[in-house]
Computed example of a mutant assay.
Amino acid sequence: MHVVVLPGDGIGPEITTATSQVLRAASEQFQLGLVLDEHAVGHASLARFGTTVRPDLLGLVKAADGLILGPTATFDFKDEARGEINPSRHFRKSLDLFANIRPARTYPGRTNRVGDFDLVVVRENTEGFYADRNMEEGNAELRVTPDVVISMRRITRPCCERIAEVACQLAMKRRKHLTIVHKANVLRMGDGMFLDICKATASRYPELAVDEVLVDAAMAHVVREPGRFDVLVTTNMFGDILSDLTAELSGSLGLGGALNMGADHAMAQAAHGSAPDIAGRGIANPVSLILSAALLLDWHGTRTRQPRFVSAAAAIEAAVADAIGQGQSTQDIGGSLGTAEAAAAITARLQA
């Protein structure tokens, strides 16, 4: 398996190095033959090549079996004419990575204020309110007057159908419970269509238990009783917010894995940002990117029918859980280890 690795900005290089270490251990243990091909992206690429994403990088990624993207300083990149391309948006849009899979779970051995849970937010990833990705040309935010801005939201039937299908298939592999999160009482046309399509898609899976909840109520229910949920499917911005909440409820945003997947490509990406305030200090939690990389292995193994990749992914997740349960983790979740030491603790479990 050939994987392009883009370390990114801030803490990106630190957690990417940690993730690569874990992946190499998994590769050796499960005979995966992983080839990790590292390239600069973000500020490092801008300084070296005059652009945050050099033109030939997309071709390299398309030719590979997967992509690992470390956190990048997206807020810094405002002018594409000056080479300031948002790497995350660039790859999500260019590779049509329409599904953002965001698991969140609690871990035995850690005190949790909301009770145990294990859920997945399935987020549509290519349209919605995101002004930089829902237009063929131009931007979906318009300044009408100095004091008036209009932000347009795009919802399409094909995008609703494919994200609903992914969510149903995932729910069938888990506890067979699908929750549709929407705001159709206010956004009657857009979310109304999303809700109808999700229901129609789910009707083809008679074993699924299906319910629906308004997004504001969903936030309250997730905080009060997250264990009631299994797979939640929703539109782009709602999913962005909801998945950060569920990751944080599990103990830290640093525990939230994320996979951006399409029909032919997938990108592992940490749920959090580049955290420049702690960059270079060796204290960043690498678990989010490690779990994201495990999701990438599982995706590749499933689509290519190679069970050893699926087994490797499960082993990484188990090693992470055991390390956290034994308190061998970074400070943000109650441990005392640094980034490299936390990765070593996970690696040691894979090698045992």
Rank of each mutant, 00 (worst) to 15 (best):
R188T: 14
T17M: 09
A352C: 05
S292R: 07
D76A: 14
R54V: 06
L69V: 02
G109I: 02
V215S: 06
S203T: 15
I163C: 01
F129V: 14
L295N: 10
V53E: 08
V61S: 04
V213H: 02
L23P: 00
A167E: 10
E165A: 13
P276C: 01
G256N: 10
E207N: 05
G273H: 07
I324W: 04
G66P: 04
D9Y: 06
N285F: 07
V114L: 06
G59Q: 14
R305D: 13
V61Y: 00
P55G: 09
V166L: 03
R92V: 15
Y130M: 04
A63S: 14
D96N: 13
L36F: 10
V223G: 04
S336Q: 15
D322M: 08
R105I: 10
A140Y: 00
A200W: 11
T235W: 03
G325A: 13
A352F: 02
I155S: 07
G334S: 06
G280W: 02
F75M: 12
L23V: 08
D76S: 14
L97D: 09
E137N: 10
Q351I: 05
T16W: 01
N125T: 06
D116I: 09
L97P: 02
H265A: 14
A81F: 09
L289A: 06
A167V: 06
F98R: 05
H90I: 00
I241C: 03
I101Q: 05
E38M: 08
V181E: 09
D116V: 15
H265K: 12
D147W: 01
C160D: 11
G334N: 07
E84G: 09
F194K: 05
F309M: 10
S274K: 08
R92K: 11
L170Q: 08
E207K: 05
G33P: 13
M219R: 07
D322G: 01
I346C: 05
G273I: 11
A340V: 14
G254Q: 06
A73L: 12
R157L: 14
V35Y: 07
F117A: 00
T51H: 03
P7V: 03
Q331T: 12
A279Q: 00
S311H: 13
A209L: 10
L337M: 13
L350T: 06
G12C: 06
G338T: 10
P286D: 06
A313L: 15
M172H: 09
R113Q: 04
T347R: 15
C168S: 03
G109P: 13
N260P: 08
I278V: 11
V320D: 08
L242Q: 03
E248T: 12
M189W: 05
R54W: 11
S274Y: 05
I11P: 15
N125C: 00
G227P: 12
S250K: 01
N185R: 08
S311D: 15
S292G: 06
T17W: 02
I68A: 00
S288P: 12
D240P: 05
F75T: 14
P206D: 03
E317A: 03
L60I: 08
I346M: 13
A263H: 12
T302P: 04
D230E: 01
D230Y: 01
K62N: 09
L46S: 07
G282M: 05
D37N: 14
V114W: 14
K183W: 10
L36M: 09
T111L: 09
L255G: 04
A47Q: 15
